[in-house]
């Protein structure tokens, strides 16, 4: 097991280095003097020179990069140009929001998508199966922001069941927080639900047609046990893959959704930073997002081991 984990980490390490280098290089690619982006127009020449030495712009690029990584690793993300707030504090406030949003979306996909897919697979071409096919097709072409708008229209404005937007931290008031997070997480999760449903259906159909299922049935295994213990466990492996692969799309959806529902998450931080030409928070938020996605990929790989007994570690 440890060897397997180590191998995956070694495989993902160059990608993590490359992505962080790309985020770092945003500063190098910036047209003009980067100290303008970091300190604004009003800074004095001395301040600019001091920052240039601090960031080591006079040094070779690999050296600069190493220093930058060092700063990031010790939690020094710089300060916001606009508010002078340390970017680390902004991250601390915003990471939980985006994390909650994506976790709830994945939860939704598993809780609705997997049973939906199983039901569809049990009666091929039945009405449930047709519904799943249509839902899967539509769910993938549905733009997040439109889904969000439609959900607000229906559940917040017409039916008045849920609040249309706003945010309360989970720790402060869990009930109010969840109420506010339901519509956003459905918005982010809806296309994942569709994909998971379709994948569960496909892989259940495939697994159910295999010999060992027939053997188990011949042995007199009960229907529930057959489905859950024998079929589902193997059918879930590709489903986990799909969820892992969709992490990037999910985060993209979260970025837009945070804007619709005015949630103070990482996506909002990036977009606000772009509008105020405030690069430090944008860089930090993008870095955190990418590293997060890479870590989820690692977790996905490792979870195969737990699901698939055939993968010997």
């Amino acid at each position: 097991m440890i060897r397997h984990v180590a191998r995956r980490v070694v495989y993902l390490l160059p990608i993590a280095v490359m992505t962080s280098f790309l985020v770092f290089s945003m500063l190098l690619l910036l047209p003009g003097d980067p100290t303008f982006a970091l300190l604004g127009e009003t800074a004095t020449l001395q301040e600019r020179a001091a920052l240039r030495t601090k960031l080591g712009f006079d040094q070779a690029i690999p050296v600069q990069y190493a220093r930058w990584v060092g700063h990031m690793a010790t939690g020094d993300f710089g300060r916001s140009l606009r508010t002078q707030e340390p970017v680390a504090d902004m991250l601390a406030a915003r990471v939980p929001v985006t994390l909650e949003l994506t976790v709830l979306a994945v939860l939704l996909a598993v809780v609705i998508g997997v049973p939906g897919g199983i039901i569809a697979s049990l009666k091929r071409n039945g009405w449930a199966d047709l519904f799943v096919s249509f839902f899967a097709m539509g769910g993938m072409a549905l733009p997040y922001f439109w889904a969000g708008i439609l959900l607000i229209r229906l559940f917040a404005l017409k039916l008045d069941w849920l609040p249309p937007s706003g945010f309360v931290p989970l720790a402060q008031d869990p009930v109010a927080n969840l109420k506010l997070m339901i519509l956003p997480s459905v918005t982010v999760g809806i296309s994942l639900v569709a994909l998971v449903m379709r994948q569960t259906r496909t892989s259940m159909l495939e697994v159910l047609s295999q010999d060992y299922i027939r053997t188990a049935r011949a042995k007199g295994v009960s229907r529930t046990r057959l489905l859950v213990r024998h079929a589902l466990q193997n059918a879930l492996i590709p489903v986990v893959t799909v969820i892992g692969l969709q992490m990037g799309t999910l985060v993209s959806g979260a970025v837009v959704t945070e804007t619709i529902f005015s949630l103070p998450g990482l996506g909002r931080m990036v977009v606000e930073g772009i509008f105020t030409r405030d690069l430090a928070p944008v860089q930090a938020a993008i870095l955190v997002i990418v590293i997060g996605v890479i870590l989820v990929n690692l977790l996905t790989d490792l979870s195969y081991a737990a699901l698939d007994r055939r993968i010997k570690l």
Partner: peptide, 25 residues
């Protein structure tokens, strides 16, 4: 290819936002 792998690791919209953050909206 390492460069491409690095770019592929970014979520689509996040990478697009990163490019826009550098070039301006």
């Amino acid at each position: 290819m390492r460069l491409m792998d690095g770019l592929l690791a970014f979520p689509l919209l996040v990478l697009a936002l990163g490019v826009i953050a550098v070039l301006g909206p």
